[in-house]
């Protein structure tokens, strides 16, 4: 068990370094650098000034030296300075992570619970109208682009029927505190969370439906019925616990990818999270910030995979540490 966990951690560390190198290289190859962006904003600069700025950010060094310095800094927990905000990247991420977590966790939980319930239902009543409806909605949610769903929801629930705020995380006009502030944030949360949940929901309802169908046909479910257990025990005790594993896998993967999942939604709703920051950093050629966010999200993936393994072992006694 300990040996297995240790192996995983070593593997994860190697993976993270590989991701860092790859990200750094890709961004290095891409045309443009922070200095060009800054110069563009300043409306021009002399070649001497540009050279000086490049030297300041270490961009005049050979590629090997640049990447070596960066890797060394990351190891000490230093993700560098944002070229746009002139502040440490770690601080920027810490500031934004809360908003992203709130959005993604809410969306994921809603999708996970609702998706599983819908999936279980449509597996049990395969020929019912609701089952077909779930299939259609899932397919639509599956294929519709996130930003389109977001815009449509804004049109419907903010413009046509002005129930919910269009964007942002707080009302800028009022300076609310306490409960009022929490309610204000929740009010702003509904639309982006709903948009993000729609996409996840499609996955989970399909996944749990397929998984449930397979389990419901298994011999031990026949045994459970033959024992005279009530239907709800057969479904929720005997079937669901077996059917939930693929859903757990998927939830783990998706949660790990929270940044990429949230980029579009955060951008559409101007939600001040990591996704927006990543998107803006690309436009501003803010390489250190972008690299920092990418590194942070790959860390999330690794951590979530480890957590998923733990949940596996809780759900299914057959799974042991290798």
């Amino acid at each position: 068990m300990l040996q297995g966990t240790l192996n995983r951690l070593v593997n994860a560390a190697i993976l993270l370094v590989a991701v860092l190198v790859l990200n750094f290289t890709l961004i290095h190859i891409a045309p443009g650098d922070p200095v060009e962006a800054i110069v563009g904003e300043m409306g021009g600069a002399t070649p001497e000034m540009i050279a000086q700025m490049r030297a300041q950010y270490g961009l005049d060094q050979p590629f090997i030296v640049q990447i070596g310095t960066y890797l060394g800094n990351v190891l000490t927990g230093d993700l560098g300075m944002s070229t746009y905000y002139s502040r440490p990247v770690t601080g920027l991420i810490a500031e934004r992570i809360g908003a992203t977590l709130l959005l993604v966790v809410t969306a994921l939980l809603v999708a996970l619970i609702l998706g599983t319930v819908l999936g279980v239902f449509s597996a049990r009543k395969r020929r019912s109208v609701l089952s077909h409806l779930v299939t259609v909605i899932a397919l639509a949610g599956f294929s519709a682009p996130v930003f389109w769903v977001g815009i449509m929801l804004i049109l419907l629930l903010s413009v046509s029927i002005p129930l919910l705020p269009i964007s942002g995380m707080t009302s800028s006009s009022a300076d609310l505190t306490g409960i009022a502030h929490v309610l204000d944030v929740l009010h702003h949360l509904v639309l982006p969370a709903l948009t993000l949940a729609t996409i996840y929901l499609a996955f989970y309802s399909r996944l749990s439906r397929a998984s449930m169908l397979e389990v419901l046909g298994s011999d031990y479910i026949r045994t459970a019925r033959a024992k005279g257990l009530p239907q709800r025990m057969v479904i929720y005790k005997h079937a669901l616990r077996n059917a939930i594993l693929p859903v757990v896998t998927f939830a783990g993967l998706q949660f790990g990818q929270l940044i990429s999942g949230a980029v579009l939604v955060e951008t559409v709703f101007a939600w001040p999270g990591l996704g927006t920051l990543a998107f803006e950093s690309i436009l501003r050629r803010d390489t250190p910030t972008l690299l920092g966010i990418l590194f942070f999200s790959s860390m999330m993936v690794v951590v979530m995979n480890l957590l998923t393994d733990v949940v596996y072992r809780l759900v299914d006694p057959r799974i042991q540490a290798r």
């Binding site: 298994s218 011999d219 031990y220 026949r222 045994t223 459970a224 019925r225 033959a226 024992k227 005279g228 257990l229 009530p230 005997h238 616990r241 077996n242 759900v315 299914d316 006694p317 057959r318």
Partner: peptide, 25 residues
């Protein structure tokens, strides 16, 4: 009513012992 009978008054042993028990309990 069937659930009262099943496993209580009439019960059944199946052919496949390898798969007839729930693996997670």
């Amino acid at each position: 009513r069937l659930n009262e009978v099943r496993g209580n008054e009439i019960s059944m042993v199946f052919q496949e012992p390898m798969t007839s028990l729930n693996p997670v309990y």
